[in-house]
Amino acid sequence: MMEILETIERWRGEGQRIAIATVVGVEKSAPRDPGAALAVNERGDVAGSVSGGCVESAVYEEAQDAIVSGRARLVTYGISDADAISVGLTCGGTIHVFVERLDW
């Protein structure tokens, strides 16, 4: 979050609606620690990351949806997940990502 704060503030200044995805939990081997965050604006610009790149595009879709619907959700990616084949972590870990619209 710290690294993308300035970008988020700039987007807010431009009146963009924004969603933030934050790693809230990891199991086994995961590339980013809890607290790592990715932000998306309604134009589609992205800042930050939640993994080594393996689940970013899936998280991006969730974030786009959160911007429109305003619905916050907890999403899990990893070997134990049904989505693993398509968007699993190549490192074999599991991450839990909270996706929300920035309306707080």
Binding site: V24, G25, E27, K28, P34, G93, H96
Partner: peptide
């Protein structure tokens, strides 16, 4: 060893 060490928040969910 695993490439990344286990973290405090592990298995909390």
């Amino acid at each position: 060893l695993p490439v990344h060490n286990a973290r405090l928040a592990d298995a909390m969910l």
